[in-house]
Amino acid sequence: MAATTIETVGQTSGASRLLRRLLAALGMTFLILFALVEIVPFVFTIANSFKCLPAINAGPWAFIPTSGFVECRDPATGSAIAASELTNGTTFRPSLEGYQTVVAENLPRWFLNSVIFAIAITILRLITDSLAGYALARIKFPGNRLIFFIILGTLMIPGVVLIIPRFLILKQLGLLNTYQGLIIPLAADAFGIFLMKQFFESIPKELEEAAEVDGANRFVTFFRIILPITTPALTALTIFSFQGQWNNFLDVLIIVGTDPNLWTLTLGLANLQGAGGETLIWNVFLAGAVITTLPMAIIFFSFQRYFVEGVSYSGLAGQ
């Protein structure tokens, strides 16, 4: 009797273990499938960025490079080399044409500009947004609420509407086509102030009162006590503003569009895209895309934890 019970128990647990394994395997298959869906396009972006144009068309799926780089054009005649000599459908002869073109088109400079703009604006926003958010959350002064509503109100105005006034003001100030002309107007933003204010309000007042009792003034309290515990909000703000500025197109176009030395990657890539006229010069475009995407991908992987935290804190993705 007892033996049968044990046997039954053993059987059920065996069955459930099997079921669990099956489910786990199923789950894993799904995960692998979705990982592939995400990774495969990236692999082909990289592979195709190393091909000559005929090879991209004849063998877009070829992803195994053979050794040694080739020239895409016959140096004697200047005509393109036939696809049959470049790929067999699985392997392809790599070429640096795409990368050489983007580098010759000043891409390193655009990259540097993107880094400068994104970092400068992010740092300035961290400072101005947290100071403004703190003032609005904690300091009582006449017009406090009014100012806050005005700031919130600017969020309702579509960005496109501001383009021409901003252009005119910067023109009057002689700031068009300068680094400061692009950085200063974007150095504070309503969303960031709102985000910081909400966070500061969630911090117990007792912390500041205790600091005050110990003789700390406002600034000491702010920098030594409050700021260190706002890390989640600051991280979110950093991520949003860095990402936002890295991808910013319209502001950059209007403010520094006529000086190629101040272009960022987004502008440079748009220019490369337009250069083909009716058609896209795929290897050049993909090479540019790889160079633009890789730094963001690396940053994302290194700070993945904070990204997820930041997004879940603010409840907003992208802004």
Binding site: I164, F167, L253, N271, G274
Partner: peptide
């Protein structure tokens, strides 16, 4: 010579500014 990306937008902004 100013060769700009998204040329129509840049030119129309310049028109709007009057300069």
């Amino acid at each position: 010579v100013q060769l700009v990306p998204d040329f129509d937008t840049v030119l129309q902004t310049a028109f709007a500014s009057g300069d």
